[in-house]
Design a protein around this nucleic acid. Structure first.
Lengths: 154, 154
DNA sequence: TATTGTTATACTCTATAACTATA
DNA sequence: TATAGTTATAGAGTATAACAATA
């Protein structure tokens, strides 16, 4: 949550000279990312789940993947999925069922309660982030989308 | 790292109608935050430290705080600091010394090696994030800073 | 043999509660 | 009493390596 994170301190590579110089683009991106992640984490913990759990549920909104695919989506090792899914399952938020096509595989899906939590969480995130961008006009928001789209991977 | 995170799926509150509609501002912010955090985490783990450790070092660049102040900066409980600092200390990256003014307190500071790692890490982050914004013109970057400044807390 | 998933193990990170020692 | 910090404990999250079952 703190804002004085890593890059900068008026002495980075490339060198900002003036003492009271405006924060550069890199700083801006870092601070914005912490702000947004703080919102995401806050919503997750308001529902007693971690951000990774919430991301897991988000993936399951329109998919019923196996552990391997899930691990890939989350950027985790497959062995990490076992516990993650097991904890969510124990709380009745997801369910694990044997794959009909592959005797080795399981298919993970949201329970009704898990889906409810997911939708509520998504709505809260959307609402809180919309509030964050409230200072921007519609034109400025459009501009922000355009600029960000040039940065995000295709 | 996955991009299909929480908000949206063409069915959020406020409702995007068209099927192939452009991603909205909220989505954009979430994706951007994950992209940036991925860069930060990647740089940290390239040096075998966590992002929290790297943030800790960043704070210590121009301060010699006590555990309590450190915990406040990182948004952690003071009891969490003990292990965090102890692990960094064991690796020779920070040092803990008794406060001269308060018999109960300790002052945490970077070792020369810790400072080296911090500067290298900050430079790598700046470099990688600059690369990320390379598709933007100087004017566009300035615009991005302006827009973001309206979102970030004063 | 290759793949899917789990288990065993070990570590980091985090919080709560209880404690020590100063103030 | 109040504050700074640590310790004890518990749990989540993560990875590596070894394993079982199936393909």
């Amino acid at each position: 949550m703190s804002t004085d994170d890593l890059p900068n301190r008026n002495a980075g590579p490339g060198g900002r000279e003036a003492a009271g110089a405006a924060p550069d683009t890199v700083d801006t991106l870092v601070q914005l990312s912490f702000l947004v992640q703080g919102v995401l984490t806050g919503v997750a913990s308001a529902h007693d789940v971690s951000l990774v759990q919430l991301r897991l549920f988000g993936i399951l909104r329109d998919r019923t993947p196996g552990m391997r695919e899930l691990a890939h989506h989350l950027g985790l090792d497959k062995s990490s999925m076992t516990g993650l899914v097991a904890r969510a399952e124990k709380r009745g938020l997801v369910q694990r069922r044997p794959s009909p096509h592959d005797g080795r595989g399981v298919l993970v899906s949201l329970t009704p309660e898990g889906r409810r939590l997911t939708e509520v969480g998504a709505a809260e995130i959307a609402q809180r982030l919309a509030a964050l961008t409230a200072p921007l006009s519609a034109e400025e928001r459009a501009l922000l989308r355009t600029l960000t789209a040039k940065i995000l991977p295709a």
